[in-house]
């Protein structure tokens, strides 16, 4: 269980997060929505200790704020918004997810780690695009943006985390890769029972894939709960400061949000 209590954080310019409290109890995909500058990515930074904060962040009884980086990395994995083009083989990149479990002077990965890395590469679907031999010799700078993002998810899954934090994992990707990545995450969630917290700008994708939503505005939570309850015309109009139209999806009826033009 992730239990966040009275979390506040600030940048030199002023407060970025004010008194944030929420809980994630079951393995589920929780989306963080809100306009630009509302504190979504800052919340993620505070949760993974990239930003100094006050308050309490407990994950299954461990205080994440006070945990050492190694201890934290054994429980929490982070997928950033974009992955740099680095001249490292895809397999080595994914294997790096085992770093928190290696001794500091250990230079190579065990066979078990390699088996796990291939499993995760298969799980995220990269072995559908390339055969094993090609992928073993491919470098990260030879992959497309979407494929690099899938490799980053495979690396995070290799950490076998309890909590997976994702900062706009579908940003700058085409529709096909957006859906592919969210489906991969959905399947991993069901398979491994991970708690997932994802910053997502696209409310329609959030509505389709997230079972719970946190809506942030000016560094505070303005709404929290099941997706259907948070996607409320009045609430979203006040948060996004624009007229919105909410319609049910023709197939399964989940709410779809359109701006009034």
């Amino acid at each position: 269980m992730l239990d966040v209590r009275n979390l506040s954080a600030s940048y030199p310019g002023g407060f970025a997060l004010r008194d944030i409290s929420f809980q994630i109890c079951n393995p589920q995909m929780t989306g963080i929505i809100g306009p630009n500058g509302s504190g979504k990515s800052t919340l993620l930074k505070a949760l993974c200790a990239d930003l100094d904060s006050t308050g309490n962040i407990q994950l299954d009884g461990t205080d994440l704020r006070k945990a050492r980086p190694l201890e934290r990395a054994r429980k929490v994995a982070v997928v950033p918004q974009s992955i740099e083009k680095i001249p490292v083989s895809v397999l080595e990149f994914v294997l790096a997810g085992r770093t928190p479990f290696k001794k500091w002077h250990q230079l190579t990965y065990s066979e078990a780690d390699k088996v796990l890395a291939w499993e995760k590469l298969e799980e995220v679907g990269l072995l559908r695009n390339f055969d094993k031999k090609t992928l073993a010799s491919k470098n990260m700078d030879e992959l497309s943006g979407g494929e690099r993002q899938l490799a980053a998810i495979a690396q995070a899954l290799c950490q076998q985390p309890r909590l997976l934090l994702l900062d706009e994992p579908t940003a700058n990707l085409d529709l096909c890769h957006q859906v592919e990545i969210l489906r991969v995450l959905e399947q991993s969630l069901q398979k491994h029972g991970i708690l997932m917290l994802m910053v997502i700008h696209d409310i329609n994708l959030a509505s389709a894939f997230c079972s719970r939503l946190l809506c942030l505005s000016h560094g505070s939570i303005v709404a929290e709960g099941e997706t259907g309850k948070v996607i409320d015309k009045k609430l979203l109009e006040s948060v996004y400061k624009t007229g919105l139209c909410i319609l049910p999806h023709p197939r399964d009826g989940h709410p779809m949000v359109f701006p009034e033009i």
Partner: peptide, 14 residues
């Protein structure tokens, strides 16, 4: 070399 942020998330005390 993956980036300071990624290294921290992988448990490296930068």
């Amino acid at each position: 070399n993956f980036g300071g942020g990624t290294a921290r998330h992988l448990g490296i005390n930068t």
